[in-house]
Amino acid sequence: MKLKYSLFTRRQFLNGLFGGWLGALMVSFLYPVIKFVFPPTREPDQVILPFLDFKDMKPNSVKVFSWGSKPGFVKKNKNGSYWAFVAVCTHLDCNVTYIPEQRKFFCACHDGWYDENGTNIGGPPPRPLRRLILIIEGEDLIIKREGVK
């Protein structure tokens, strides 16, 4: 079907074209701004720590290490095995503490409780504490993100 008259006036067409190009140009200016303002903050794939520092830990205690910009806990269990957690509450990002007497992790911000396995047992936390993979290789303690080879 051929229309007898154009649906747009010349002015509307020009305005649309102008706005489109201007918008495209602005978007290409915006791209570096967004890249700058939101820099990529990647958490580390793995952290290697000297095992010597953790050898003498008492069972049922934790030691802090830095997991990127977050704190991490290396926990020595009663049976002498080591676990690693990201020591950040799953509720609203507060750092948690370990209370050895009660064998619980505690988040002071909103009264969140986790048991010694990191499972959320009381208060607002929706998920268990995040576990990290911990491997002891000779002198090194290697802590990895899950899913990293």
Binding site: P32, V33, K35, F36, P39, P40
Partner: peptide, 9 residues
């Protein structure tokens, strides 16, 4: 050096 596009800004 580190921040993306930082040197251009």
């Amino acid at each position: 050096t580190e921040i993306p596009m930082g040197w251009i800004i």
